[in-house]
């Protein structure tokens, strides 16, 4: 394409018609508790890693649900697997398992 020095405006909108939800399906098939989040944010609030960097497990899960796979994979590496989030989650979401599943998906499928 010829570079005219400008590009068409990027649409800033979640397009769920085009979203890649394969990671969501892959994870949900392996850990049903992924569905149970009520977005209360306890995990992010208590997070050991989140004390030092911008890392939110709640947001990561949400990214996956909206098909922002790359972002989720990139973020997942910041987790220290310490398990505090598992202890505070009011819906018993198996948080560490979901982080590991995201990491596995990254390795197995290069998503």
């Amino acid at each position: 394409m010829i570079d005219f020095g400008y590009a068409p405006l990027k649409i800033n909108i979640h397009d769920l018609d085009k979203a890649d939800l394969s990671l969501m399906d892959w994870i949900t098939a392996r850990d049903e508790s992924f569905r149970l989040c009520i977005a209360c944010g306890s995990c992010t609030a208590t997070c050991t890693a989140g004390n030092f960097t911008n890392f939110s497990f709640r947001e990561l899960c949400h990214s996956i649900r909206r098909g922002e796979v790359e972002k989720a994979v990139r973020e997942s590496e910041k987790c220290m697997l310490c398990g505090k989030c598992t202890l505070v989650c009011p819906r018993n979401v198996n948080t560490r398992n979901i982080i590991k599943l995201v990491r596995k998906a990254n390795q197995n499928f290069r998503v």
Partner: peptide
């Protein structure tokens, strides 16, 4: 004011 995780959980998971 907050710890850095000791590393045990990663260690136990083989990381």
């Amino acid at each position: 004011n907050g710890s850095i995780c000791c590393g045990r959980p990663l260690q136990l998971n083989g990381e």
